[in-house]
Amino acid sequence: MRSFEDQLFGGVRVVHVPGIQGPHGPQGEKGEKGDQGERGPVGERGPQGPQGVQGPQGEIGPQGRSFTPDAMGPYDDRPLYDDQKAGFVYFAVDTATLFYKLSDSLADWSTGTSIKGEAGLTGPQGIQGEKGDKGEKGDKGDTGDTGPQGDRGDTGPQGEKGEKGETGAKGEKGDTGEQGMSFMPNYVGLDADRSNYDGYTKGVAYLATDTGKLYFKKSNALGDWTDGIDFGRGPTGPRGSSANEILMDPDPELYFLSVYGETHEDEIWFADTVPFDPDPVETFEGSLES
């Protein structure tokens, strides 16, 4: 039911009593579109719908401009630009990294963006080029330091003894040389023990004390000795006479007794004779003094 509505007509309140609704009349013509009302408040966001189908790929855009950093150099030189303004770009060539000044503050750099890509796959080996011309010989390098002396090698086999050559003509006597230095052999011993040094090096000297011969190693070959040089004590000479033996001819004592007498134990008996010339006493005392 419809509610009652009050209307005033000339100050008299009229109360309408609703009756039975009649039938709808025909629809009238559509009126002109009214002005758009004010936009209402935004309602709450509804649930997210399903993802739509991917659209077609767009056209390739124009090529961008090439990028040139404001400064470049090794990473260790970046502090030289710590006082630059915001937007300043520094490229570290040794690490292939870009750094941006985030503000005008001192050393306020970005963490760095590497522009070095990942290593690509190894390409196929190219065709070998033609062999180039041989270069000029380089200068000889400096002589290196002498290395440590190596171990002594084993003694080689002794070579065969060559034939003795013909004796040459005797040369003229040379001038007397200066007095030589005293010589000391390297080893001394019996001739039979010389074989103990057969393996020694060239120039080693060995003196055999029993034969008086001096031997030298002619080479490093085993047992390659010289024939030997007489270097020791010579043969014993004849026994010499002393001065007393020369003066005692005749024997002074016998001569004294024959002139003056004879001796009896510690006493001498003189005979009455005239002394001889020379005086045998002086001859005897002179022999004792000499």
Rank of each mutant, 00 (worst) to 15 (best):
M1W: 08
S3Y: 12
F4M: 02
E5D: 13
D6L: 10
F9H: 06
G10R: 09
V12F: 10
R13P: 03
R13F: 02
V14C: 06
V14Q: 07
V14W: 12
H16F: 13
H16Y: 13
V17N: 11
G19I: 11
Q21S: 14
H24D: 13
H24V: 07
G25H: 03
G25W: 11
G28Y: 02
G28M: 01
E29T: 13
K30A: 14
G31P: 08
E32R: 10
Q36T: 13
G37L: 08
E38N: 09
V42K: 12
G43S: 04
G43Q: 05
E44A: 08
Q48H: 14
G55A: 08
P56S: 11
Q57S: 05
E59A: 14
P62Q: 11
F67G: 13
T68I: 07
P69T: 04
G73Q: 07
G73H: 09
G73D: 06
P74V: 11
D83W: 13
D83E: 15
K85S: 12
A86W: 10
A86P: 10
V89T: 12
Y90H: 08
F91N: 00
T97H: 05
T97V: 12
L102C: 06
S103F: 04
S105G: 07
S105R: 13
G112I: 04
G117C: 11
E118G: 14
A119G: 10
A119T: 12
A119C: 12
L121Q: 06
Q128C: 05
E130P: 15
K131H: 06
D133I: 11
D133Q: 14
K134T: 07
G135M: 01
G135D: 05
E136Q: 03
K137W: 04
D139K: 09
D139Q: 12
D139E: 11
G144I: 00
G159Y: 07
G159A: 07
E160H: 08
E166C: 01
A169E: 15
K173D: 13
K173R: 09
G174P: 12
D175N: 13
T176Y: 14
T176Q: 15
G177D: 02
G180P: 09
M181H: 10
S182R: 10
V188M: 15
V188H: 11
A192D: 12
D193A: 06
S195C: 09
D198K: 06
T201D: 05
G203T: 05
V204Y: 03
A205Y: 07
Y206G: 09
Y206K: 10
L207T: 04
T209F: 13
D210G: 02
T211V: 02
G212T: 02
K217Q: 00
K218H: 00
L222N: 13
G223F: 05
D227H: 14
I229R: 00
I229V: 03
I229G: 00
D230H: 05
D230W: 01
G232S: 11
G234T: 05
T236A: 15
R239Q: 12
G240I: 03
S242E: 04
D249G: 01
P250N: 05
P250E: 02
P252L: 02
E253C: 06
Y255S: 01
L257M: 03
Y260F: 07
G261C: 00
E262F: 10
T263F: 11
E265W: 09
E267K: 09
I268P: 02
W269T: 14
F270A: 11
F270R: 15
A271C: 03
V274R: 04
P275R: 01
F276T: 00
P278A: 00
D279I: 00
P280Q: 05
V281P: 00
